[in-house]
Simulated scan of single mutants.
Amino acid sequence: MLLILFTDLKTPITYIPIAILFAAALTLLHRLLTTCPSHTSKSPHRSLLVFLLLTYAYITLQFAFFSRPPGSRSTISLIPGATWGTTLQSHAYVIENILMTIPLGILLPSLWPGKSSLRSLAKCLSITLACSVALETAQFLAQRGHCQTDDVLANVAGAFIGWMLFYIGSKIKAAVGRPRSDRKES
Rank of each mutant, 00 (worst) to 15 (best):
S47Y: 00
I98F: 11
A157N: 02
F160Q: 02
P70D: 10
G177L: 00
L54R: 00
R68P: 08
N97A: 10
Q143N: 13
A23Q: 01
S72H: 11
D150A: 04
I102H: 10
D8A: 14
S120K: 03
P113F: 07
F65R: 07
T137W: 15
V176K: 01
S120A: 04
P80C: 05
T40P: 10
L108W: 07
F51W: 06
E96V: 01
H30N: 06
T35S: 08
H39S: 15
T137I: 12
G81V: 05
W112H: 12
T60Y: 11
S74P: 05
L129K: 04
K42V: 04
T35Y: 11
Y93V: 13
S38P: 09
S117Q: 11
A174M: 01
I18P: 06
Q62N: 09
V156Y: 08
Q89D: 13
R178A: 07
A19W: 08
A23E: 01
V152R: 07
L21C: 13
R31L: 13
L26H: 02
C36R: 08
L61T: 03
G158E: 04
G105T: 09
P70V: 14
R178C: 03
A25H: 03
R183G: 01
L99I: 05
S72C: 13
Q139R: 06
T137M: 15
A122N: 07
A24M: 11
T137G: 13
A138D: 04
A24F: 10
K42R: 13
W163Q: 01
P70K: 12
E136D: 11
L29K: 00
N97G: 13
V156C: 04
I127W: 13
T75Y: 12
I13L: 14
L21G: 14
T149E: 07
S74Y: 13
E185W: 09
L32D: 05
S170D: 13
T14N: 05
L61W: 06
I161A: 15
R73F: 15
S170Y: 01
L125E: 07
R144Q: 15
R144G: 03
T128A: 05
T27Y: 03
K10G: 09
G81F: 10
C124K: 02
L32K: 05
L53S: 03
A154F: 03
K115N: 15
P103T: 01
F66I: 05
Q148A: 14
P69D: 15
P80L: 06
S41K: 07
D151A: 06
T86K: 14
L111D: 00
A23K: 00
S47N: 14
F63N: 02
L88K: 12
W112A: 14
G158T: 00
L33E: 01
V152W: 03
R31E: 07
G158W: 00
K10C: 06
L153W: 06
L48G: 08
G169S: 04
